[in-house]
Design a protein around this nucleic acid. Structure first.
Length: 455
RNA sequence: GUGGUUGUAGCUCAGCUGGUUAGAGCAUCAGAUUGUGGUUCUGAGGGUCGCCGGUUCGAACCCGGUCAGCCACCCCA
C-alpha cells in the first residue's frame, strides 16, 4: 500500500488550526449578523452552464469540471467518443461534463437570487461561508480548495450599503486585532471615464488589468504593458497623469475632478467616492482612495473595495468587493443591483499567525483533567466530572489507570489548565486536589466545593 | 498553462569528487522514579534515501521520466 496523499493544493486542518480558523470565521459571522445579514449555503457543485463565461477566459480554464458518470456504458460508446473529440478541441460539452465545482460564492448567489427573487424580501442581505475550488497551480497563499466568506446586499442602489460594508470591514479587522489594515476604494465609473478619455470603452479591460499591477511592477512596466496592449503614447500619458494622482483623499478627489470630472461617468464616480469618504471619515480612518485600484472582475460597475494587510506583512489583498448593477441579468432576471464584499480567510489566518494575534485561549479545549488512579477512584471521579459537565465545564477523565507522569504529560500536551487528583487517600477523606499546571499550585477541596469550583 | 527549485526516520535537517552496515537533534517507548508534570541521565525502536527506469563493478549522490511541496509568471482570494 503506497502512502496516502491528498490532492494537489488541498489541505487537512488539524485541531489547532481548525480552532484558529473557527475563531476567524466566528468573528466574521457575528459581525455579519450584527449588521442584519442572513446565512445562505449553496451546493458544492453547479451546472457547468451556470459558471462558464462568468469569470472571463482565464476563469473558465480554472473551473474544476466533474466528469459525467456512466461514460463507460457500451451502448453510448460511439456518442461518447464523438463528444470527447469536442473536449480535445477545448470545447465543453454536456456529453462529457455537465457539472463543475463552484468557483466563487457570488455567481451561485446570483443564480439563487434569480431563481428565488419572488419570495425574497428586498433588499436581500446574505452572508455565505463555504469552500470554493480553482484548478490553479498552488503557491504561497493560493490553494485549489479554499474558503470564501462573502456578504452581499441585492435589490438596493443606495450608497448606504457601501458605507455599511466598509464599516463591516473595519469592525471585523478591529476585532481580530488587525488595526493596521488599509481599506482602499475606487470607482469603476472613474475608471470608465478614464477609458473614455483614452479612446473609448473598448480599452477599459486592457487599462484596468494593466493599472491594477502598479503596486507590484511599478509605473514603467505598467506603461510598457499599456503600449503592448495597443494604446497610443497620448493615451498612455493621460493614464500616467491619472496614476500619479496622490495625496489626501480630498486632494485625490480634486485631482480626479480636474482630470476626468467633465465626463458624466467621471462626475458620478467622483461624487460617490466623495460621499463614501465623508460618511466614513469619522468612523473609519483607514479608508483610502486609490485611483490605481481596478480589480480584475469585470462585473463590477460602481464602488470597488480592496482590503490590504498591515504594511510590513508580505501579503497582498485580504479582502475585496464592489458594486455590480446587473448580476442576475446573466440568469434572465434583469434590474437587480447589488454590492458585496469578501474576506480572504486563509490569508487573514497567515497574517494573524505572522503578527501573533491569535488569543491564547483559542487553544484551550478541555479545562480540567481528572486523573485515573484506580477503579473506585475513577468511579467517583467520573461522577464528579459529570456534575461539572452539567455546569458546562469542559472536562475529561484519563482513559485508564496509568502512572502520574503519563497523565500529567497528556494534560500538558492538550493544553489543559487544571488537573484533579483523586486517589486512595482522597477518596477516604472525601476530598481531592486541584492542581493548576501553569503555576504548580495545588489545593485540597471537598467534593461539594469541587463541583462548584470555577475552572 | 509556462519556468525555477526541493524531496533522506513521525518532525527539522546533515550526509565530502559516486565507495562497506545512511547519521544528528527533537519527538516516541522503556528505565533511573509504585502518589505529583516541565529539568536531567541511561537505553531502545524507527528509513525500499518520493516513485519508476537508465549509466556504473558499485547510486541517497550522476542522467531521464513521473508525482508532490515551495517560489515566480499568467490570473487571483
Amino acid at each position: 500500500m503506497a502512502k496516502p496523499t491528498i490532492p494537489q493544493g488541498t489541505r487537512d486542518f488539524g485541531p489547532e488550526v481548525v480552532r484558529k480558523r473557527t475563531y476567524i470565521l466566528n468573528t466574521i459571522r457575528s459581525v455579519f449578523e450584527l449588521y442584519g445579514f442572513q446565512p445562505l449555503e449553496t451546493p458544492a457543485m453547479e451546472n457547468l452552464d451556470t459558471l462558464m463565461g462568468k469569470y472571463g477566459e482565464e476563469g473558465d480554464k480554472l473551473i474544476f469540471k466533474i466528469l459525467n458518470n456512466g461514460l463507460d456504458n457500451p451502448e453510448k460508446e460511439k456518442q461518447v467518443r464523438e463528444e470527447f473529440e469536442k473536449v480535445l478541441q477545448g470545447k465543453n460539452t454536456k456529453g462529457i461534463t455537465e457539472r463543475a465545482l463552484k468557483y466563487d460564492l457570488t455567481i451561485p448567489f446570483a443564480r439563487y437570487v434569480a431563481m428565488n427573487h419572488p419570495q425574497l424580501v428586498f433588499p436581500f442581505k446574505r452572508y455565505q461561508v463555504q469552500p470554493v475550488w480553482r484548478a490553479d497551480r498552488p503557491q504561497k497563499g493560493r490553494y485549489r480548495e479554499f474558503y470564501q466568506c462573502d456578504a452581499d446586499v441585492v435589490g438596493s442602489h443606495s450608497l448606504f450599503n457601501e458605507v455599511e460594508l466598509a464599516a463591516i470591514y473595519h469592525e471585523v479587522f478591529t476585532r481580530l486585532g488587525l488595526t493596521g489594515y488599509e481599506l482602499r476604494i475606487n470607482s469603476r465609473k472613474v475608471l470608465a471615464a478614464l477609458a473614455e478619455s483614452c479612446g473609448g470603452a473598448d480599452n477599459m479591460t486592457d487599462i484596468t488589468v494593466a493599472i491594477d499591477k502598479l503596486d507590484k511592477i511599478g509605473l514603467e512596466k505598467v506603461k510598457e504593458e499599456l503600449v503592448s496592449r495597443g494604446l497610443s503614447n497620448d493615451q498612455v500619458s493621460i493614464i500616467e497623469k491619472y496614476l500619479n494622482i496622490s495625496g489626501t483623499n480630498e486632494e485625490i478627489l480634486s485631482s480626479l475632478t480636474a482630470l476626468i470630472g467633465y465626463s458624466a461617468d467621471g462626475e458620478k464616480g467622483i461624487s460617490e467616492l466623495s460621499y463614501l469618504s465623508s460618511q466614513l471619515a469619522t468612523h473609519n480612518s483607514q479608508l483610502k482612495l486609490d485611483p490605481a485600484l481596478a480589480r480584475g472582475l469585470n462585473y463590477y460597475t460602481g464602488i470597488i473595495f480592496e482590503a490590504k494587510a498591515p504594511a510590513g506583512v508580505k501579503m497582498g489583498s485580504i479582502g475585496g468587493g464592489g458594486r455590480y448593477d446587473d448580476l442576475t441579468g446573466l440568469f434572465g432576471v434583469p434590474g437587480i443591483p447589488g454590492v458585496g464584499i469578501s474576506f480572504g480567510v486563509d490569508r487573514i489566518y497567515d497574517v494573524l499567525e505572522e503578527l501573533q494575534l491569535f488569543p491564547a485561549d483559542v487553544q484551550v479545549g478541555t479545562r480540567v483533567l481528572f486523573f485515573n488512579l484506580g477503579e473506585a477512584e475513577s468511579q467517583k471521579s467520573f461522577e464528579l466530572l459529570q456534575q461539572l459537565r452539567q455546569r458546562g465545564i469542559r472536562g475529561e477523565l484519563y482513559h485508564e489507570n496509568a502512572k502520574f507522569d503519563r497523565q500529567f504529560k497528556y494534560a500538558e500536551k492538550k493544553n489543559i489548565p487544571f488537573v484533579v487528583i483523586l486517589g486512595e487517600k482522597e477518596l477516604a477523606a472525601q476530598t481531592c486536589n486541584i492542581k493548576e499546571l501553569a503555576t504548580g499550585q495545588q489545593q485540597s477541596v471537598s467534593f461539594t466545593d469541587l463541583i462548584r469550583h470555577n475552572f
